[in-house]
C-alpha cells in the first residue's frame, strides 16, 4: 500500500523542529510500524539524507524503549507498544503523523528520541525495597495472598515507556509512579518503606516538573500494559496516609 508519513524532525534539543512529509509506495501490511520506518531510513540513507532517529530495542513490547505519538495517540491506535503496532492497522492512502513523546520533563534529544531519565530518578527516590544482597530470609517464609500477588504483578508489568505522560493532557507521570507504589505497597516485603517510598517518589515526580493528575484516565487507555487507574488512587491514599501520620 501507499502511505504518507509526516514526521517530526528536530536536529537537536535547541532546534525548533518541524513536521516533514515522506511518501512511501511499497508498504506491506505485515510490516511492523518500526520496520516501515526502517525501510524509509534505508532509503533516506542512500539518498544521503539523515535517517530519522527513533528509539527501539526489544521490538517485542517489553523493554519500553520505543514510543511514538502516532496520529495524536501515544503508541498509535491500538493498545500496544509502537513496536508491536503493524501496518495492517492503517489503510492505503493514509497520512500518518509521527511525533515524539511531548512533555517538558521528557526533552527531545533528536527527532523522535526523548530523554526519559526522569523516570529513573523517580525510582531512585524510593521505588525499591531495601534488601541487601545475601540478607534475604527463606522465600517461602513469607506467604503472600494470591490476590495481592496477582495485583502486585499487574502493577509491576509497567514497562516505563512513558506513554502515560505523553497521553495525559496534564503531562502527569502519576500512572507510572503509582504502578510502582502499588506493586511494592501490596507486598508484605514492601510495608516497612511504604510511607517513605510514596513521599519520596511523589516529591521527585513533582520536582521533575510533571503535571498534576486530574483523574482524566487517558493514561490508562494509552498504557500498553493496561496499568489500571486504581493504582493512582492507591498512591493518593498512601500519600495522604503518610502525611496524616506525620511522616513527611
Amino acid at each position: 500500500m501507499k502511505i504518507t508519513v509526516r514526521v517530526w524532525r528536530q536536529a537537536n534539543p535547541s532546534d525548533e523542529g518541524k513536521m516533514v512529509g515522506y511518501d512511501l509506495d511499497d508498504v506491506s501490511e505485515h510490516m511492523s510500524f518500526l520496520e516501515m520506518l526502517d525501510v524509509l531510513n534505508e532509503r533516506l540513507t542512500l539518498e544521503g539524507e539523515e535517517p530519522i532517529a527513533f528509539d527501539s530495542d526489544c521490538r517485542e513490547g517489553i523493554c519500553g524503549m520505543c514510543g511514538l505519538v502516532i496520529n495524536g495517540l501515544a503508541h498509535g491506535p491500538e493498545r500496544t507498544t509502537t513496536c508491536q503496532l503493524h501496518m495492517r492497522s492503517f489503510k492505503d492512502g493514509d497520512v500518518i503523523d509521527i511525533e515524539p513523546w511531548r512533555s517538558s520533563s521528557f526533552p527531545v534529544v533528536k527527532d523522535l528520541v526523548v530523554d526519559r531519565g526522569a523516570f529513573d530518578r523517580i525510582i531512585q527516590a524510593g521505588g525499591y525495597i531495601s534488601a541487601p544482597t545475601g540478607s534475604a530470609p527463606e522465600a517461602n517464609n513469607l506467604p503472600v495472598p494470591k490476590e495481592n500477588a496477582d495485583h502486585a504483578f499487574e502493577a509491576a508489568t509497567c514497562i516505563g515507556c512513558g506513554a502515560c505522560v505523553a497521553a495525559c493532557p496534564n503531562g502527569s507521570a502519576m500512572l507510572f509512579t503509582a504502578a510502582k507504589i502499588t506493586h511494592l505497597g501490596l507486598l508484605p516485603q514492601g510495608q516497612p518503606e511504604r510511607a517513605s517510598r510514596v513521599l519520596g517518589m511523589v516529591e521527585q515526580h513533582d520536582h521533575e516538573g510533571f503535571g498534576n493528575c486530574t483523574n482524566i484516565g487517558e493514561c490508562t487507555a494509552a498504557c500498553p500494559k493496561g496499568i489500571p487507574l486504581d493504582t493512582i488512587s492507591r498512591l493518593n491514599r498512601d500519600l495522604l496516609g503518610a502525611l496524616a501520620k506525620g511522616k513527611a
Binding site: R6, W8, M19, V69, N71, G72, L73, P77, D97, E99, R102, A167, P169, E218, A221, A222
Partner: peptide, 10 residues
C-alpha cells in the same frame, strides 16, 4: 501535538 487527528484521545 501538531497532528490534527484524534484530538479527543482514546
Amino acid at each position: 501535538y501538531k497532528s490534527k487527528q484524534n484530538k479527543r484521545g482514546f
